[in-house]
Design a protein around this nucleic acid. Structure first.
Length: 270
DNA sequence: CTAAATACCTGATGGC
DNA sequence: TGCCATCAGGTATTTA
């Protein structure tokens, strides 16, 4: 399921095929995604792509006229295809480019979205409230500490709140908390500044490493070039309930926090 | 205001 | 073989 590293891996993967190409056509096979695909996306036709950006888990394909905002939800993927390649099931949108290739949006569970705006995408209602990028300079322990005061909710839910910091999904939340030595169920407001410094560093490190490795493959994520990522074997706690902790050997525990499965080591995390 | 629950959706999996 | 129940989960929205 695409978290920030997978989205960034996708961005990097498709960028060289897209920049400076003109969008010749957009074929919509299924417009019923999380929100319907608006017909004004056709404004992008015959426009040259200036950049392929990212904000949080949103991909931004920008032309002079506007920006296509794509979210992969949890089962979405983008891939570069030849025009001769048969349409697969759940290939909902195709961008036909002037270099003769296709960008295909594929999303079995249709939790994702393909939107269009002719204004600054950062002012779009879905992006305007987002917290800092975890790999940017303004994201640090002080930021987490300041926002968390008086918060009673679990720290895991806190760091997964996109208004606090973007890009920390269920997998990397468990991984970051393990690395920082903090139990996921602990109240966000009761965590020290020192621990938040550790946590901010852990989030940075886990995400940066995953991006470097090309993203995690769990169920149906496929890199834009069709190859799976390689991060799965690096996971320390996620999905490892009952298995021994790689650091201390104690059994990894699973717990539902905020309706989401969470994993931690009772020996290494307090 | 906060925090928790819910909706959106389909494919993989396991039990019978 | 098929049918049903369960689970996966990002995030906007609704409810408490």
């Amino acid at each position: 399921m695409p978290e920030l590293p997978e989205v960034e891996t996708t961005r990097k993967g498709i960028e060289p095929f897209l920049v400076n190409q003109t969008i010749r056509a957009i074929h919509i096979h299924q417009s019923s995604l999380r929100w319907p695909i608006s017909s004004d996306i056709s404004s992008q036709v015959n426009q040259r792509i200036l950049s392929v950006g990212r904000r949080g888990k949103y991909l931004l394909i920008t032309t002079k006229r506007g920006t296509t905002i794509i979210h992969l939800g949890m089962s979405g993927s983008l891939r570069i295809a030849e025009t001769t390649e048969a349409l697969r099931k759940h290939d909902h949108v195709e961008f036909v480019l002037s270099n003769g290739i296709l960008l295909r949006y594929h999303d079995p569970r249709r939790f994702g979205c393909v939107l269009y705006t002719d204004e600054d995408p950062n002012e779009h209602r879905l992006l305007v409230k987002l917290g800092p990028e975890p790999l940017s300079e303004i994201f640090d322990g002080e930021h987490l500490f300041r926002l968390s005061r008086q918060k009673k909710s679990a720290v895991k839910n806190f760091i997964m709140d996109s208004q606090v910091v973007v890009g920390v999904g269920n997998i990397y939340a468990s991984e970051s908390l393990f690395m920082a030595g903090i139990r996921p169920g602990k109240a966000a407001g009761r965590i020290s500044r020192y621990q938040y410094n550790q946590l901010a560093l852990a989030i940075r490190e886990v995400l940066a490493k995953a991006i470097k490795m090309g993203g995690t493959t769990l169920r149906d994520f496929v890199n834009s070039d069709g190859n799976p990522g390689y991060f799965k074997q690096q996971l320390q706690v996620y999905g490892r309930a009952g298995e021994p902790c790689r650091l201390c050997g104690l059994e990894i525990k699973a717990k539902i926090i905020g309706q989401r499965s969470s994993f931690y080591c009772a020996g290494c995390q307090s």
